[in-house]
Amino acid sequence: MSGLSETERAGCTKLLQSLSKDDVFSLSDTVTNKLIVVENVTEAIGAIITFTKNAEEFLKRKKVHRDLIFKYLANEGVVMPPNSEKNKLVKRTLELWSSGKAGVDQSLPGETDDTKQGLTSDTDIVKAEVGFDPLVLGQQFCQWFFPLLNSQNPSLAQLPQDWGPKHFWPDAKLCLLSRAGSEQMEDFLGAELVSLRLLALTRDEQLLLSPNLEPQGLRTLASPHGLVLVAVAGTIHRDGACLGVFEQIFGLIRSPLENNSWKIKFVNLKIRGQDSLGGAETAAPALTCNSTELQLLYS
């Protein structure tokens, strides 16, 4: 029998689904010592899960290579330095699974019924109940938004989630400032254009945005008029290489016509390439904006 918890089984399954068919069959033969005959990938994954003694043994298998674990963690919203060795990635994955927050349960410690946010079943737009905590909303929003956007990246080899203009207000705005060699400013107006430009970052440019949800990387602010600002810093990757850092500020407003779901009113995204960082640490970047600067966005 498998020695894996429910969370570990779900995580191992997700990793196995990213492997090639040949690698899955090969790993099944290794784990079962070729005593179990499987006819398809689903049976092979089931055999691997059943006969795996523990999660650490699974993660240390040669077929479960470093890049696979790195991409898995990034998709779960876990920030890791791009040059992390496999043993560090394995340790962090085990910590994630033991916390119970991966795959099966995305709730946050200390979250109550009054502050819990989720996704609407029909539109996947973040929603909140009366009496919400802005910080909890910000954490939940980032745990929803970045995996959703990153899933559009073809290098992750996963099924893209339901991205589109429905997550934005019709008059949404995007201000994109990039500093990679030269400085470039782009402005977009309207849900369709904003949605398409953000989509291009991951689908076409194959970037992976990894947010830092620790206190120094996430800040929220709520105005008395219903606008909630979520500011987050993070790193940008492509094919395992760290290209730079980003700071992103979202303006969120409830939609009373859509069951009080939160929709994105504006996005300010600032990207800095490695050449503009001057050797600064990028593993867990901190926000440079403060609460006073955020308040200026209310007007």
Rank of each mutant, 00 (worst) to 15 (best):
M1C: 13
G3V: 10
G3R: 11
G3P: 08
L4G: 01
E6V: 08
T7S: 03
E8G: 06
R9A: 02
T13G: 09
K14I: 11
L15N: 00
L19G: 02
K21G: 10
D23E: 13
S26G: 05
S28E: 09
V31C: 07
V37K: 14
V38P: 03
E39V: 05
N40G: 09
T42K: 14
I45W: 06
I48C: 01
T50I: 03
F51T: 00
T52G: 04
E57K: 07
R61E: 12
R61K: 13
K62N: 07
K62Q: 09
H65L: 14
D67R: 08
L68I: 12
F70Q: 05
F70W: 06
E76R: 01
N83L: 10
E85P: 05
K86C: 06
K88V: 12
L89Y: 03
R92L: 07
R92G: 02
E95F: 12
L96R: 01
A102Y: 02
A102D: 04
G103F: 05
V104Y: 02
D105Y: 00
D105H: 00
L108A: 14
E111W: 09
D113H: 10
L119S: 02
S121R: 08
T123M: 06
T123N: 11
I125V: 12
K127G: 04
D133S: 11
P134E: 05
L135N: 06
L137N: 05
C142F: 04
C142D: 04
W144M: 13
W144I: 11
L148Q: 08
L149G: 03
Q152K: 13
Q152R: 13
P154W: 07
S155W: 15
P160M: 15
G164M: 06
F168K: 08
P170W: 09
P170R: 12
D171C: 02
D171K: 04
K173W: 10
K173Q: 13
L174M: 08
L176V: 05
L176S: 05
L177C: 04
S178R: 12
R179W: 13
G181A: 11
S182R: 10
Q184T: 07
Q184E: 07
M185C: 15
L193R: 10
V194N: 02
L196V: 15
A200C: 11
A200V: 07
T202P: 10
R203S: 14
D204C: 15
Q206L: 05
S210Y: 00
P211R: 05
N212E: 14
N212V: 14
N212R: 13
Q216D: 04
Q216N: 03
Q216A: 05
R219P: 02
T220N: 01
L227G: 12
V230Q: 00
V232C: 14
V232W: 09
I236S: 04
G240H: 00
F246C: 04
E247S: 01
F250W: 04
L252H: 05
I253F: 13
K263T: 04
K263N: 08
I264L: 15
I264M: 15
V267W: 01
N268Y: 12
N268M: 13
K270M: 12
R272I: 03
G273A: 08
G273L: 02
Q274M: 09
D275A: 15
G278I: 11
G278L: 10
A283W: 08
A284F: 08
A284C: 08
A286Y: 10
L287P: 00
T288K: 12
C289I: 07
N290K: 11
S291T: 14
S291V: 15
E293C: 11
Q295R: 15
S299T: 14
